[in-house]
Simulated assay, not measured.
Amino acid sequence: MAPIHKNHAFAVPQFTIRDYSSFFAAGALCCTISHGAMTPIDVVKTRIQINPAFKGLGIISGTRLVIAKEGAAGLLTGFGPTAVGYLAQGGAKFAGYEYWKKSFVQIAGDQDSAVKYRTAIYLGAATVAEFFADILLTPLEATRIRLVSEKGYATGLVTGFTRLAREGGVRELYAGFLPILLKQIPYAIGQFTVNEFCHELVYRNMTEETKRNLSATSNLAIALGSGITAGFAAAIISQPGDTLLSQINKGHGPSGSMVYRLTALAREAGFKGLFAGLGPRMILTSGLVASQFLMYDGIKHALGAPPGLEIHKEN
């Protein structure tokens, strides 16, 4: 990555449109591949959340029931909107994070301020990037949920999206926008901020020569360890939002505005209920986040994209 360290000249890389296009492509591919590969798990998870016949089942027993009822192809229900949704969301999130991080560094104005306020820069960049990415994701996530939850609703992505837009309009397409923000923004904050600090912790006491001479295995170990740790953090801080999103998708909660429904559901669930199922989700999310960062860096390198901007504090 292109570093901004203390005792170095304060220089912010000037990314071009081509650079941001590469960031977008790398983010889009890493997210659509990782989330697309998890479609069978998402199908079973959604069935367990909303179908009484699946109540009390686990992932393995739920998978067996889906296959028994719908065949193996049933595990790929909703693959189209999942792949397209996270293609758009992933590209916007990763490219947006690079853009907003650089913008906030420039707003900081000088080297010392950028390093001093790096946590705020990470948090702000992740939040703004995820907000705009979720504008792209929400209608496709709504389509996915309908395809998975209502058998025979449509034949696929295009027919499902068209029917939902025709019958419910923009309001129905974006009915889940607030719950998705409550899940995805904390997720992005954990994913990016913790990954940044893990790298900083590892590199802080290395000389520049040591960094340049790290073996491919060492770089892979650092990236993998940072990604797994960031995945754990992302799962923990986004778990309440994920729980509430699941409840909303099941139609639970009182009638009224979305804010009122979410507040009532959170109060009803309590602290323990909001974090139910955290263990398995931490395992899944750690693999998801780690694989995304590994693929993102690899695809960027293959596309000839420049390194991202680092703001690390050195001893």
Results as ranks from 00 to 15, higher is better:
S218Q: 15
I4L: 14
P13H: 04
K272E: 10
G287H: 01
A269I: 01
K183N: 07
M206D: 10
A9L: 12
F177G: 00
I121H: 00
T127W: 05
I311N: 12
G273C: 07
I107A: 08
G190P: 00
I228P: 03
H252T: 05
M38I: 05
G298Q: 13
R166E: 11
I180E: 14
V158K: 09
L288Y: 00
T82F: 04
P254R: 06
V202H: 04
L274N: 07
K116F: 05
G253M: 02
A154I: 11
G169M: 01
G85F: 06
N213M: 03
E208F: 12
G91V: 08
Y296N: 04
T210Q: 15
K102Q: 15
T77K: 10
A188I: 02
N51L: 06
R212Q: 14
T143H: 13
Y174T: 06
N51K: 11
D110C: 09
D42I: 10
L157F: 11
Q49L: 15
N7W: 12
A264M: 07
A53D: 14
G36I: 10
R166N: 08
K55T: 15
F275A: 01
E70S: 08
L75W: 10
I283M: 13
G251C: 10
H252D: 15
V259A: 11
I107S: 06
H8C: 02
V105G: 06
R18C: 09
V105H: 04
N205G: 05
L262P: 05
P306D: 03
L164I: 11
A73Q: 02
R166S: 13
Q89Y: 03
D242G: 07
A269Q: 15
F161I: 04
L294E: 09
I237Q: 09
G91N: 10
L136I: 08
L57V: 00
G56W: 06
A235Y: 04
A165K: 10
